[in-house]
């Protein structure tokens, strides 16, 4: 139980995917303007990360390892994730329209999100068990959401700030992200 908690919290805080591993920067900077879209994107990413782990872990350990085909991980994983996102989208559309309404628009954006591919590959690289992998994915997803939600608040303030002309737009956003990242550095050493 204790290891699970450590995996969950370190994926969320100390090794935050966006702010210390730089995965999923595109949605982090692109979809963090409003609080509701930030949380929607966060939930969708968490959901897809867990589902992708549920699918890729058995494929790696059940099919690829026994046949000595581990080197196909990248090709297989990215295809599985792309197919799976499409499947989830269609399923939600048909069976849970209310959920589709709130998450649907974000799902197609996630296929090529490097955080999703990253978490599935990291689970394999770190030799996690099945349950640990799921916990790690959950932590990574929640950490992603946390970073997005916090950053959407920062950006709201940034809109009213008087920024020099050269820095307006992306440069100011990146520097704000750097300051948020400094605050996450406070978590480092939490579990050592």
């Amino acid at each position: 139980m204790k290891t699970m908690l450590v995996i969950l919290l370190s994926a969320m805080l100390t090794d935050n995917f966006v702010l210390s591993k730089f995965m999923g920067i595109c949605p982090f900077l692109g979809v963090s303007k409003k609080l509701d879209s930030a949380s929607g994107m966060g939930i969708a990413v968490t959901f897809v990360m867990i589902c992708a782990t549920l699918v890729t872990y058995p494929i790696h350990h059940g099919i690829l390892v026994p046949n000595h085909l581990e080197y196909f991980d990248t090709v297989v994983f990215i295809l599985v994730i792309a197919l799976f996102v499409q499947l989830v989208e269609n399923f939600l559309k048909k069976c849970v329209p209310s959920l589709y309404k709130s998450l649907g628009v974000y799902l197609p954006l996630i296929t090529t999100n490097c955080a999703v591919l990253g978490v599935t590959v990291l689970n394999i690289d770190n030799n996690y068990t099945f349950v640990q992998s799921i916990v790690n994915s959950l932590g990574a997803g929640l950490g992603f959401m946390l970073a997005l939600v916090i950053f959407s608040g920062v950006r709201k303030k940034l809109e009213y700030a008087d920024i020099p002309e050269t820095f307006k737009g992306v440069p100011a956003t990146l520097i704000a992200a750097s300051i948020v990242s400094v605050s996450f550095m406070g978590f480092s050493g939490l579990f050592s």
Binding site: A177, S178, V182
Partner: peptide, 10 residues
């Protein structure tokens, strides 16, 4: 550190 990456790029 990660924070420096964001800062430098900005």
């Amino acid at each position: 550190m990660p924070a420096g990456g964001f800062f430098t790029l900005g």
